[in-house]
Structure formats: C-alpha cells, structure tokens
Amino acid sequence: MKKIFLLFIILTLATFMIAGCGGAVEEPKENVQQEQSEAEKQEATPSEDTSYPDKPITVTISYSAGGGTDTGARILLPYVEEILGVPVNVVNRPGGGGWVGWTYLLNQEPDGYTIGYINTPNLMTGYLNPEYNRDKSIDDFDLISNHVLDYGAIAVKADDDRFQTIDDLIEYAKKNDLTATSTGVGSDDHIAALKVNDEVGTKFVAVHGKGAAHGKAGVMGGHIDVLFANVGEATVPHKNGELRVLAVMSPERSEFLPDIPTLEEKGYGKIYSWSARGIAAPKGIDPEKLQVLSDAFAKAMANAEHIKKMNEMGLAVKPLIGDEYYQFLKDDESGVKKVSHLMGW
C-alpha cells in the first residue's frame, strides 16, 4: 500500500515537474497569447450576431507531425489564431495516403469548429483510383482557402556531366531509359514524369519511394538519374551545390530559382506540375462562418512575417479563395484524369 502510494507520488511529482518547467519555458508564448487577446479586443466584432467563433477550432492534418504540410500549417495557424481570437489546434491524423484524415474530416459536423488541410493531387488520386472504392470528391468539401502552391522541378546530381541543360536531358531520355524519383504512385512527382513522357516522348521510369528524402538521397548518391520533386524541396540542395535544377514545371519562372527556365519556355509545351495544399471544411458549413474563416485565413496569409517564414522553407504562398480555388482544384482533377490511363486505372 505504502509502496503504491510512493509510486504515484513519484509519477505525479514528475508530471508536475515537467508541467512546471514546461510552463516556465512557455512563458514567452503566454505573452503572445496576451497580445493576441488584446488584438482580439481591438478587432471586437462590429456585427453583433456573429458570435462565431467562440470556442477552439481544430485543424486536422492528414500527415504526421513535422512533415511538410504540418510545418507549413504550424507556421500559419498562430496568425489565424490571432485574427480569430480563439485557439486553433492542430490534430495530426496520418495514414491511407491522407485519406484517414480526410475521411475523418468529412465525418465531422460542419459547424466550423473542425476544418482541415487538403493536399493535391493526393486528394484526387485517392478517389479517382478505382481500387480504393471511394465515393467522395472535392464537392464533399467547402473550400476555405488555398495556402501553398509548390511547382514541380526537374534536377540532376550537381556533378552529372551528361546533362548540362534540360535539352540534353530530354534528348537523352528520348532514346534511353532514365530512372526518376517519385514519392509514390499517383504522387505529383510521378504524374509529372508521366506527363513529360506523354508529351515529349521521353522514357523516364519512376522509382517509387517513401517521401521526398528518399528521392533526394537517391539522386545525390548517384543511384537514381533524375529528381522529380517540388521547388520547395530542390531549392536548398541546388543552392548548396548538391543538385542542379534543370527546369521547373510552372507557367512562370519560380521566384526562388529565377535563373531556371520553365519547360514551357523551352518549347516542350504546357507541362505544369504542382502540389497544392489548402484548408477546407466538411460540406454544409454556414456560409457566414465560411466567410469568417476565408477572411481570417486570407488576412493571415497576407502577413509579411508569415510569407517570409514560408519563403525561407522554399514554399510559395498562394492564397486562392472561393470559386477561384474550386476551379483550380477542378483543373487539378482533370489533369490527374488525363494521365490516369498511364497509371493503369
């Protein structure tokens, strides 16, 4: 009896200890919160009937903590919190290529207190691939705003003498098989390689791996020939001289890689590839609440500090709201459908 008691004392003491110390460390954060509440007072709602939001909002993220989506969200959400004046909490629900989280999100009440990140093209490939038997689509979401738009990039190892320019690479790849990185079947990187194969007649063979790090290590180590990735992933190794980006797959040059041509300007046609992530709510949310959220996110995304932090990570902020965002996702969907035969669906 005495001994059990001792154990509990140890455990509770230990908890209090970290609770106490953690609190001390978190002190600066509390100050921020105070400032937030002051900011909230200043923004005290002029329209009286809109009490929304008056309790914490949960943002589901369909990928693990510390991943790209998660990090980007955690950079943005404090600014949203500041504007909305209620806590905005992140809950990670990884698994099923993102669909564990999205299925959960779609099953929540559309009361505006549970919203989540949606990622393209994983969202589309998840419901377009008939193997998965999913009866959901973009139309099951009410869209709040896009956040990040990361275009595709093609890179080789920095000391790969075979390819100085994108033309060298494509000429070679028309005649020979070249291995290309991919973050999985139906990932944006995979779709990008398929699009190039389809349009130009190259013979890139995708080597599917887990995550962008796998591909980067493969190309840097000289095991895989070509890196198909996103600008956000390729910029830093390009600047460090570990990789050489040959082209980007966007309508315009990337602000992070102004010297790198697009495939389009090199005359290979309109081959665009991107992964985008934004915030959505389950269908049926009150339009006024949706408006509150869209406004808050738009304002937070315009914050210069937020943009600077995102740019440091090599991520371009691209706010899109309302119909524009919907149209953007629909385009994405038809882009995936166009290459679906290449994936064997």
Partner: peptide, 16 residues
C-alpha cells in the same frame, strides 16, 4: 486502493 488507483491514473493522464 481501487479509488486511489483510479484517481491517480486519471490525474496523471489528465496532467500529462
């Protein structure tokens, strides 16, 4: 004993 265990576990989990 039982209630002490219940109380302590709930408290511990709650705090942590």
């Amino acid at each position: 004993k039982i209630f002490l265990t219940v109380f302590c576990i709930d408290l511990f989990v709650y705090l942590l």
